[in-house]
Design a binder for these strands. Sequence first.
DNA 1: ATGATTTGTCAAGTATATTTTATATTACTC
DNA 2: GAGTAATATAAAATATACTTGACAAATCAT
Lengths: 68, 68
Amino acid sequence: MKNLRLRSARAAKGLSQQALADLVGVSRQTVNAIERGDYNPTIRLCLAICRTLDKTLDDLFWEENQAP
Amino acid sequence: MKNLRLRSARAAKGLSQQALADLVGVSRQTVNAIERGDYNPTIRLCLAICRTLDKTLDDLFWEENQAP
DNA sequence: ATGATTTGTCAAGTATATTTTATATTACTC
DNA sequence: GAGTAATATAAAATATACTTGACAAATCAT
């Protein structure tokens, strides 16, 4: 499932995927893959993204109705 | 830095590291390493742990005063 | 419409999360 | 204090996050 909250938070800061990637120290493809949702970043990367975008983990990465 | 909130939440459920590891589908050493804090789990594992312990990401993995 | 920037995607490589096996130590019960 | 469960820790192997380079499609400005 796509991470639209991340995409939205990034857009709200006026950052391209490349710009966010530079700020958090990963490649553009990694940011792209996270937004597309077909993968599983490390918590440290998630934390770096959250701090850069002034959001918390729950804001961007918590999923409410997941497992039973 | 150790993750004492995780340790505390696990203890509050009366689970051993092994028991939590079984519930979330990883090895005991992985849970131990996360609690000891000297590493960097994936967000999916963090989510699985949070759901098992009835906590959110911010409860267990958010760190307030981190980067400048 | 053309050019530039951004985004989606792929394949091959590198770094590292996680497993497995094993041992030592600490706590708990009897 | 012996015996057992829980925790800390390490080395080698495996799975996978992440990189690099490349190219096409989409978006945006001129």
